[in-house]
Nucleic acid binder design. Sequence first.
RNA 1: GCGGGGGUAGCCAAGUCAGGUCAAAGGCGUGAGGUUUAGGACCUCAUCCCGAAGGGGUUCGCAGGUUCGAAUCCUGUCCCCCGCACCA
Length: 963
Amino acid sequence: MMNFQELDAKWQQAWHEAKLFEVDSDKKPKFYLTVAYPYVSGPMHVGHGRTYTVPDVIARYKRMRGLNVLFPMAYHFTGTPIVGAAKRVTRREPDFVRVLTERYGVAEPELPKFEDPHYFATHFARESELSYRKGMEWLGYSIDWRREFTTVDPSYSKFIAWQYHKLYDAGLIVKGKHPVKWCPGCGNPVTDHDLLEGEGVGIVEFTLLKYKIDDYVIPAATLRPETVFGVTNLWLNPDVKYVSAQVNGERWIVSEQAVKKLRDQGYQVGEVSSIRINFGREVEVPLTHKRVPILPAKFVDPDNATGVVGSVPSHAPYDHVALLELQQHPDTLKAHGVKSSDVEGLKPISLIEVEGFGESPAIDVVNRIGIKDQTDSRLEEATAEVYRNEFAKGRMRSWVPKYAGMLVSRAKTAVCDDMLANNEAATMYEFSAKPVVCRCGTPVTVKVVEDQWFLNYADEGWKEKARACLARMDLVPPETRAQFEHTIGWLHEWPCTRSIGMGTPAPWDPKWIIESLSDSTIYMAYYTIAHILKTIDPAKLTDEVFDYVFHGKGSADSISRSTGIDRQALERMRREFEYWYPLDYRMSANELIPNHLTFHIFHHALLFPKLCPRGIISFGMAVLEGEKMSSSKGNIIAINEAVREYGADTVRLYLMSVSEPWQDLDWRTSEVEAMRRNLERFYSLAEEILVLPETGSPSFAQPELWMLSQLQRHVQAVTEALEAFETRKAVQHAFFFIMQNLRWYMKRAQQPEARAHMLKRVFNVWLRLLAPFTPHICEELWERAKSGGFISVAPWPKVEEGLIDEGAELVESYLGRVLEDIGKILRVVKVEKPKRVCLYVAQDWKWRAYRIAMTRVQDGRVDFGKLLRTVEKELGLRLHTADLAKYLQQAVQELRGMPEQDLKTLARVEVDELQVLLDATNFLREQLGVQEVRVFKAEDATRYDPQDRAKLATPMRPAIFVE
RNA sequence: GCGGGGGUAGCCAAGUCAGGUCAAAGGCGUGAGGUUUAGGACCUCAUCCCGAAGGGGUUCGCAGGUUCGAAUCCUGUCCCCCGCACCA
């Protein structure tokens, strides 16, 4: 078995020493591509391997096309997951520690160091054997490592500060309130990663409708404020403790649990005292000013929002069932001091009409399911069904004032906004599911952050700039355009600061950190100068430096004087930026279209309006043997394990061949192993070719002409595929199809010199086609073939149009077809070792008739009678007209079914079937394993044809007889 | 619900935009034969069903339709996956 790993190391070292991938501005045309830098919260696994191999393959291809290619890399340190991971180490969470020590090779005594998020990130960025830097080196990426940085480097922070000054000055940073998940125990906002329970739980916004009684406000929480028109009563839970609290200058009645939540959510909560609820008393409904009674209901959850619910029996299954129960059990009412006469008259009020439901959807659904009790758990699904239908398809009924006819989805916000404006409503947040518990064990709450900063993507002017930028971009795959367009329209204020985590302080309000998606929108510009910035004291990097470098403002001289930065360094940065920008292609995961990638467009549109990125390629996701990978659980295959096991080129070729970049990728060990065997086979074939003797320029026969022609086709296909980023298609041609062709050719080739010459010639092209995918093996073989220089920068093969030979291709496919037909016959007659195979080539008249029919078919419509007469006349044969007609019918049908291209070729090329078969007699005999292959013309009177099969011959399909 | 993607032979997956070369590429798996000291690997062939002559039959989620002809176009329908925000 080959030791590919030795080759990997050898050539990686050679590239490094030759500084082959370190590039600066140049006279040559450039190609600049980037891929989302990794978020370093764990090791680099095979899924990342695909993400980063695609740009490397493209970079290598473009380099061979003669472009000056920049492919840089950095690491994302900003944000909470790394901090969260470090915290998990601090707490010594057993599962996490186990993954770290047993799976990721961290030594037990080292653990305390991992409590520091920066250490943690650095470890997985570049120190560990499992790190991204090592993985990328092992895979032989053609990265310019001089430009490597992290997002918490001081110079990068200066760059972010410059960017955010610009955004702030443009008025696109706004301040507002914002609900977050908050852990009272930690005193921090928490993310999903920080949760013990309740992962993926959302925050929903309730509207509190202010019902009034005397001087009190009873705020009923609802997700459907538009149903206020259908309220029949208010629900409070008789078993719950309610309190009266001073809230924003009003006296509110809420459940005891709600008080703390209101306080967290920015309400001014003063004195709190207990209160007894008088069921049966009437309260005034906001907006409609109707009076409705307070009634008892056990389904009301005191821990959900305010613990008070308005009752809309027509559209809310819970309300309908609870009301029905009260009406049927007056004794319950009596216990709470309510007169049954107060309840009897309450009738559901329908305010929404929705197709497929009657007057009251809630009642329909409850009756259909057969729910009788307000504690029935099926009420949840009933509620969901009613809500879903009403929200999607419902309209407000005509009697509803002001909102009549409005779609429920619109009325919801309209009613809510109106009521908020009149102080008849308020807003409260609650989790969509419970419980939500922090890893520290404390239940998480919703907290409204008061002075949160937002990027105002809602700004129409900004959106327009982003749309203009998008319109000019090339998107791969093209279907993503709709997603981008949709996202630009849908984005509004994005909270761009955090109170915790590593990163750059917001320049105007340094107690906040710029959030991680917000600090990685235009870093492609930073790469262009990253290596030069390393020579400059970050303290000197004022805004005017970046203004000069990126916008050409001011002069190098004056900035050099005011900052103390060397003038030439400034000029060089300006030059580099101007050379490399705009970015040619951005690659990232398609799940980032709704934020990261669209932000990238927004920020470029604003800061570099004339230098918008030229294209975006969105990758699919990666799975392992059909299962989701998860770094934190350790069920991944790390890149270093994969490379150690299979070698870099196998891993690369596999990742590129298994699916196109935008499709999902499935890493399957059995297929990776098969790929390694294929590569080994390739390598041993290459070694056979290498030792072939040099020959002069022998003359070529049919097999050589065919091989050269096929090769051109593959060069063309690989080139087109790579231009379109279709790595899988490219590998199919560059690897598998050429391999297949070569096998066929080697069986077909007759003359040893021509064969040796041809193999070497094909091999030279073949290696170059494979070099972007399997660079290490290709470098090695390139060197051993004494081709000179690095193949990594060798010229990409050109299609030699003159070598495309349709005739030669037609002949080979003809032979293939003949072989296949014989094989089928042998199988059907169950003859394993035939003694003799005879072939009979179609009679001349059939060929001539065929050619005439061919021209008719090519012209389009075939007038059969006319065709028949023409043929009869032209051939001047004494044939039975019926025989001729039958044959012509068959020929026309066959020609019609033929693809246009083949028809054209056939019309253009003369094939001497007899000669072709005679030339291939040896080949056919070997392939079939028969003693004798004989070829005749069908009309040859002396032919050997005991079963008289010759008459079955048609052009391009000889008759066959096997013995 | 909104936005996007998808259902193809045992599995993965091409083909669909530009209808005929499509019983449908390629890979994996499986079977037979060859080779090898054995295992492994390698090579050849086969792998929807039927067939003692290169043929026929039935297929591309399901049901209709357009067409001489549909995996491909149209209509309807069922199912699956991803994203929907403060999370990178």
